[in-house]
C-alpha cells in the first residue's frame, strides 16, 4: 500500500498492523504505514475515521484512555515503542505532540517553554538559550521578545498554539505530532503555522492530522488517507491529490462526502 514515489531511507516512525479497540469496536484496523524522516506527513480522512487515535498511538498517549486496547506494533527508528522495557516518558520525549486547542500552562511564556527542560534540571543559561531558540523556531520570538514573563494566557489563540509548538520543540524531539493543530484558529494564524511547519521540516519529522484537505495539499510531502479506521491510500501528496488510486480517496478529496 505504501509505495511513495522515490526510494527513501528507513522511516523514522512506522506502524505494522496497528489496531485499536474500544471494547469490541475497532477504531483502527490493522494500519501499516511509514512516516518518512524530516518530511511533513499529513493524515486526512472524515471525522471519526481514527486519525486522532492513530497519532495518539504513535507516542503512547492512547494508554491514557484505559478503555482502549492496542494490537500491532509501532516502531521508532526500528524499535518497538510499546516494548515492556521502554518507558512511555522516553517515547514522548522523542515524539512530541501538539493538540487541537492550545493548551498553555497558566504560567509565563518563558516557563511554558522551559517546562520540559526543567524536568532535566538543566543550567539556567542553557534553559534560556533553548527557550529563545525554540520560540524562534516556532516563529513566535519576534512577537513576544519584549516580555517573556507575560502570562502565556494573555497571548492570542494563534500565538498560544505556536507557543505550544515551541514548548514541544524545546525538548528536541525527532518527531512532532500535530492533532488538528490549526482547527481552532483563524485563517491568518493558520497560515503562519503552516509557514513555520514548512521551515521546520528540515529539522523535525512532522505528522499533521487534519480534516482540512487544502491544508494537507498545501503543506505536506506525503499524505495518508484513512477511512473508517483503515488506511486506504498513502503516497506523495502531489500524486495522491492529482491521481488518487482509490475511489474512496477520490470521493473524499473531491468533496463528494464528509
Amino acid at each position: 500500500m505504501s509505495e511513495p514515489a522515490a526510494p527513501e531511507p528507513a522511516p523514522v516512525l512506522s506502524t505494522e498492523g496497528l489496531s485499536v479497540f474500544a471494547g469490541s469496536r475497532e477504531i483502527l484496523r490493522r494500519v501499516s504505514l511509514a512516516v518518512p524522516e524530516k518530511k511533513i506527513t499529513a493524515v486526512i480522512g472524515p471525522s471519526g475515521c481514527g486519525k486522532t487515535t492513530l497519532i495518539r498511538a504513535m507516542n503512547r498517549m492512547v494508554e491514557l484512555s484505559p478503555e482502549l486496547r492496542i494490537e500491532g506494533t509501532v516502531r521508532y527508528r526500528g524499535r518497538d515503542i510499546y516494548a515492556p522495557e521502554v518507558s512511555p516518558v522516553v517515547v514522548r520525549r522523542r515524539i512530541g505532540m501538539v493538540f487541537q486547542r492550545p493548551t498553555v500552562f497558566p504560567q509565563s511564556i518563558y516557563e511554558n517553554v522551559a517546562f520540559g527542560l526543567r524536568l532535566d534540571r538543566e543550567e539556567e543559561d542553557a534553559v534560556e538559550r533553548t527557550v529563545v531558540t525554540s520560540l524562534r523556531r516556532a516563529g513566535l520570538y519576534e512577537e513576544v521578545k519584549e516580555d517573556l514573563d507575560r502570562p502565556a494566557l494573555s497571548l492570542s489563540g494563534g500565538q498560544q498554539q505556536r507557543l505550544c509548538i515551541a514548548r514541544a520543540l524545546a525538548v528536541n524531539p525527532s518527531v512532532l505530532l500535530l492533532d488538528e493543530a490549526t482547527a481552532s484558529l483563524d485563517p491568518i494564524a493558520t497560515q503562519k503555522i503552516e509557514e513555520m511547519l514548512r521551515e521546520l521540516k528540515g529539522e523535525v519529522s512532522i505528522v499533521l492530522v487534519t480534516h482540512n484537505i487544502a491544508q494537507a495539499a498545501r503543506t505536506s510531502d506525503v499524505t495518508a488517507y484513512l477511512h473508517q479506521g483503515r488506511l486506504i491510500e498513502m503516497g506523495a501528496t502531489s500524486e495522491l491529490f492529482e491521481a488518487p488510486r482509490e475511489k474512496l480517496t477520490e470521493a473524499y478529496i473531491t468533496g463528494r462526502f464528509g
Binding site: Y76, G78, V86, S87, V89, V90, R93, R94, L119
Partner: peptide, 17 residues
C-alpha cells in the same frame, strides 16, 4: 542510541514516579 536517555537524572525521575 535511539532513546538517548540513560542519565542518572533520568533514572531518578522514573524511580521517583
Amino acid at each position: 542510541p535511539v532513546w538517548g536517555t540513560d542519565s542518572p537524572r533520568w533514572r531518578r525521575r522514573v524511580a521517583a514516579d
